[in-house]
Design a protein around this nucleic acid. Sequence first.
DNA 1: TGAACAGTTGAGGAATTGTTCAAACGATTG
DNA 2: CAATCGTTTGAACAATTCCTCAACTGTTCA
Lengths: 108, 108
Amino acid sequence: MDERTNNQSDASKTLPCEDEIYELAELFKMFGDPTRVKILSCLQIRNMYVGEIAETLGMTISAVSHQLRVLRGAKLVKGIKEGKEVRYSLDDDHVTKILEYGLTHVNE
Amino acid sequence: MDERTNNQSDASKTLPCEDEIYELAELFKMFGDPTRVKILSCLQIRNMYVGEIAETLGMTISAVSHQLRVLRGAKLVKGIKEGKEVRYSLDDDHVTKILEYGLTHVNE
DNA sequence: TGAACAGTTGAGGAATTGTTCAAACGATTG
DNA sequence: CAATCGTTTGAACAATTCCTCAACTGTTCA
């Protein structure tokens, strides 16, 4: 049995470069924490204020805010100040698709 | 501006259940580490023995083996013993798609 | 102005993670 | 059988992660 007994048909494949690898890992890391997945799922339902998210998930406002900061850093959500409150929404079309794809996989 | 000013058109959405969330996070966690992404990328090119992976990535055999164990646990790769060596391959069609999707996103 | 509210931030600590090192394992070879 | 090879494993350690708590900012409203 030779090396090419492999489900990837084409041989012209190559490793992504170091930078891509790290960015990729950084992206997926965002989806690799239950709290962040919950927050993103919340925002998939509708845009919410920090307090709403916290209440929906039964978490501290502080904990939610910390994670929102991380998600903001990854450009996955954005927050817009509206008076005292900050309304958060998904900042990236890919978020929904990636989550959906993962869910399909998990429930296969 | 009411709450439904939202890019998700349909309102009939709901949070995934706790178990799904955790499985989902667990899945994405696998892709959330550069070393594991590298290993998976290696196996996308072709099936490899542990030593080959280690050499390709310039890593310790031990480090690679540890990560392969994690990936095996997640059912993302599988190893088949062939004499002294163990040949690893991707164990899941989704792996390639998820990585590709992430790469597209990163390079957009 | 000042009290109340919504949210952010930083320090601190417990838990988890990824690596290295050394020891062990099973299969092959002399 | 003993030596060697490819791999796995466990302990130990440093680094990172996520939460809590308390302090702080900025906005509203009486």
